[in-house]
Amino acid sequence: DLSALRVEEVQNVINAMQKILECPICLELIKEPVSTKCDHIFCKFCMLKLLNQKKGPSQCPLCKNDITKRSLQESTRFSQLVEELLKIICAFQLDTGLEYANSYNFAKKENNSPEHLKDEVSIIQSMGYRNRAKRLLQSEPENPSLQETSLSVQLSNLGTVRTLRTKQRIQPQRTSVYIELGSDSSEDTVNKATYCSVGDQELLQITPQGTRDEISLDSAKKAACEFSETDVTNTEHHQPSNNDLNTTEKRAAERHPEKYQGSSVSNLHVEPCGTNTHASSLQHENSSLLLTKDRMNVEKAEF
């Protein structure tokens, strides 16, 4: 173990290094160091905050020279020094078990990766560091076993998940096959086929009936047209017969005018059967003409 005197000496050296690497504005270890034209180094955030307070150039807090945003430059070497100082402080805390008085939040800088452990060898070769390295080497064999167990647990979990997924996939297939086998029997399929065939026959029977009705309507229309044509021909046949009657009536009127007047009046009210309204109107006109002729003949006879 380190003596108290040596611990104090190391602590004083760390404090001196820390004062050199402090920012003059925030009085902390410089984060993202930036250098000016006057070779003074500050935190990048502190300098941008200072420049944004005034429009135009501002003055350096140490030498009062003008500073602009374009004049600022990043210093990589200074950032490396800060990183190495942080590593020294971490090693000091691990070796002594004491917390550094002016320690900052170094938890963000710590890294437990194997590459980081290899890099620590180049920091300080001390008894405390050696003991700590031995402890780490002793704890390393235990870690692979834990990793193997965790991997086995994960693989077993994956296997159970896969088996569950396969079961879920197989179950719908089985149910679907069961439904297909038990849903419709052979008799049901035959009945469905016969039902479809009967429906098709009914459709075939319905369509000819409609065509037959249309044919019957067409035949009825044709018969009505033929009947009207026969009526017209009958009226045409009746007209010459009426003319013959008129000639006979004229002759009778010349011989017996008194008797014919009474008979002509009675004939006005008689309509021949089986004739249309057109034929009756023609008869009325003929009878009126005959009456006028008879009157003329009677007057001539009187004179």
Rank of each mutant, 00 (worst) to 15 (best):
E8I: 03
L146N: 11
L5Q: 12
L290T: 15
I30R: 10
C46N: 13
D200P: 01
N143S: 09
D66Q: 06
L21W: 03
D188E: 11
E299L: 00
T233G: 12
I30M: 08
T96M: 15
K109D: 11
H256V: 09
K49Y: 11
C23R: 15
A279H: 08
T248G: 09
R165K: 10
S113L: 14
L155T: 14
M47I: 05
Q138G: 07
V265A: 09
E9Y: 12
V7S: 11
Y195G: 14
G128F: 01
L21K: 15
Y104L: 05
K54Q: 13
K31Y: 13
Q283T: 15
A220D: 03
A4T: 06
T160A: 05
A223Y: 01
T163F: 00
T149A: 09
N105C: 05
C23W: 00
S139E: 03
Q201H: 10
A253T: 06
S186I: 03
C23M: 15
K134H: 14
A193K: 14
I89F: 11
R255G: 08
S263N: 14
L164M: 12
R162W: 00
A253K: 01
S126F: 10
D1S: 08
I88S: 13
V265T: 10
E22Y: 05
P172T: 14
E202L: 00
Q171S: 07
S228G: 03
L94I: 08
S75C: 05
N267A: 04
D213I: 00
I25V: 05
E8K: 11
I206R: 15
G56V: 07
T189V: 07
K259R: 02
Q154N: 12
T36G: 03
L151M: 12
L21C: 04
P141N: 07
S113R: 11
K259Q: 14
K54M: 12
T76L: 15
L151K: 12
G274L: 14
N12K: 14
K19I: 01
E254H: 05
S197F: 04
T211M: 14
A193E: 12
Q18S: 12
V232M: 03
N276S: 02
L203G: 11
K250N: 04
V121T: 02
E271K: 07
D39G: 08
K37H: 03
S185H: 03
V153S: 10
F45P: 12
M296G: 09
K55P: 02
E202P: 11
C273R: 01
E258V: 03
L85F: 12
V270S: 13
E22L: 04
Q53Y: 08
A16G: 05
N131K: 04
N52S: 07
P141L: 06
S152N: 13
A193S: 11
S126M: 11
V34S: 08
S139D: 12
E202A: 11
C23Q: 15
L289F: 03
H269I: 08
T247R: 05
L136Y: 03
A220C: 14
K87R: 09
E28W: 11
K44G: 10
V177I: 00
K19G: 04
K134E: 14
S139T: 08
T248Q: 02
T235S: 01
L48N: 08
L21A: 05
N131V: 14
N131P: 04
R174W: 03
K300E: 01
Q93I: 07
L203V: 10
T235N: 01
L282F: 00
E9L: 05
C63P: 15
V82I: 05
V198A: 03
V232R: 04
R130W: 00
Q125N: 06
H284S: 14
G262F: 01
A301T: 07
C26H: 13
N246A: 08
Q209S: 13
N143K: 08
P61T: 05
I89W: 06
L27H: 03
G56E: 12
Q171G: 02
L217S: 12
L290M: 08
K69A: 06
S150W: 00
D95F: 15
K54C: 01
L86E: 07
K221R: 08
S3P: 14
C273F: 04
A220S: 10
K37C: 03
Q283F: 00
D188R: 14
F106D: 09
I20F: 07
G262P: 08
K221C: 00
G159M: 04
I67Y: 08
L164W: 04
E148L: 01
L62G: 07
D200S: 06
I88N: 05
Q209M: 00
R251Q: 02
K19Y: 02
E32T: 09
N246Y: 00
N157K: 12
E74A: 14
E148G: 03
R132F: 01
T233K: 13
V121W: 01
D231R: 11
N157R: 14
K19Q: 03
S71G: 12
V121F: 02
Q18F: 13
R130Y: 03
S197A: 06
S288I: 01
P257M: 01
L48C: 12
L2Y: 14
V34G: 13
D231F: 11
L268E: 13
L50K: 02
R70T: 08
S113D: 15
Q80T: 14
Q11H: 04
T292D: 14
S216C: 05
I25L: 05
S288T: 07
P61S: 03
P144N: 07
Q59R: 06
E8L: 05
T235Y: 14
S71P: 00
F78P: 12
D294V: 06
N191R: 02
T230I: 01
R162F: 10
L5P: 12
E32R: 13
N12I: 05
A16F: 14
K250F: 06
R130K: 04
D200E: 02
A279Q: 00
D244N: 03
L98T: 10
T233I: 09
I30Y: 10
P141C: 12
S145L: 07
K134R: 13
E84T: 12
D218K: 05
T233Y: 00
V161E: 12
G128A: 09
S152P: 12
E28Y: 11
N52W: 04
S263R: 07
R165W: 02
S288F: 00
M17R: 15
Q138K: 10
F92I: 10
S139C: 07
K109V: 06
E83T: 15
L2S: 11
R174K: 10
S266K: 09
S103H: 02
S150Q: 07
S266H: 04
P61N: 10
T68S: 05
L27Y: 03
S145V: 11
G210E: 09
P141A: 13
A4F: 04
Y100H: 04
S241G: 00
V270Y: 13
Q93F: 07
N111K: 10
T194N: 07
N131W: 11
A252C: 11
K31P: 08
V7K: 07
V153C: 09
N143V: 03
I123L: 10
L117I: 05
N15E: 04
N157I: 01
P57S: 05
E229Y: 02
E120D: 14
N15M: 04
L72R: 13
K259I: 12
V232F: 01
V265C: 09
K44N: 05
Q147E: 10
S145N: 11
M296T: 12
Y129R: 09
N105M: 15
S150A: 10
F92V: 09
E83G: 04
A193F: 00
E32P: 12
Y104N: 00
K55V: 04
P257V: 05
M296V: 12
H278A: 14
K118W: 15
L51C: 12
N65I: 10
D294C: 14
Q168I: 11
P33Y: 12
V270M: 10
I215V: 07
M47C: 15
E258M: 00
L50V: 03
T230D: 13
H278F: 03
R77I: 09
V121G: 08
L85R: 13
I41W: 12
K64N: 10
K87T: 05
E271H: 13
E142Q: 09
